[in-house]
């Protein structure tokens, strides 16, 4: 089965991004497809490369980046939600005249159309939120 996955809560405060990660790894291990994960609302904060959790805790961003590297999963951060919350890739930082960018490896910023497209393409859409 082909799953589309939405993550709609931020890391650490909520369990949602962890649960989504566990779901995706389990689905892939069982032979299912997860071509894309879409990060919305505070979920966009999963994709910052500037978080530094304590060393004896899981690093949520690095887990996702490693998953994208291994499986080619497309990790999409909603641009409108990201701009509100200070998540910028290099191009957007330059375009907006900001002095830094903070998108982690394996993530990319794009529009809400990618969410709709994913929902149309998938056999089943899973939302991980509050």
């Amino acid at each position: 089965m082909k799953f589309g996955v939405v993550v709609s809560e931020g890391p650490y405060t909520h369990q949602a991004s962890d649960t989504a990660y566990h779901f995706v790894t389990a689905a892939l291990a069982a032979g299912h497809e997860v071509p894309r994960v879409f990060f919305y609302h505070d979920g966009v904060n999963v994709g910052t490369r500037l978080s530094i959790p304590p060393q004896d805790e899981r690093n949520i961003q690095q887990q996702w980046s490693a998953l994208a590297k291994e499986h080619g999963t497309d990790l999409v951060i909603c641009i409108a939600a990201a701009q509100r919350r200070g998540l910028l890739d290099k191009n957007e930082a330059e375009r907006q005249g900001k002095d830094a960018d903070n998108i982690a490896e394996g993530f990319r910023i794009s529009g809400l159309g990618q969410l709709i497209e994913m929902a149309i393409d998938a056999d089943r859409l899973m939302t991980f939120g509050d």
Binding site: Y40, A80, G111, L112, G113, L115, I116, E117, I120
Partner: peptide
């Protein structure tokens, strides 16, 4: 609502 408005184009 922002998703609904974007999604309407599909």
């Amino acid at each position: 609502l922002e998703v609904v408005l974007i999604g309407a184009a599909f």
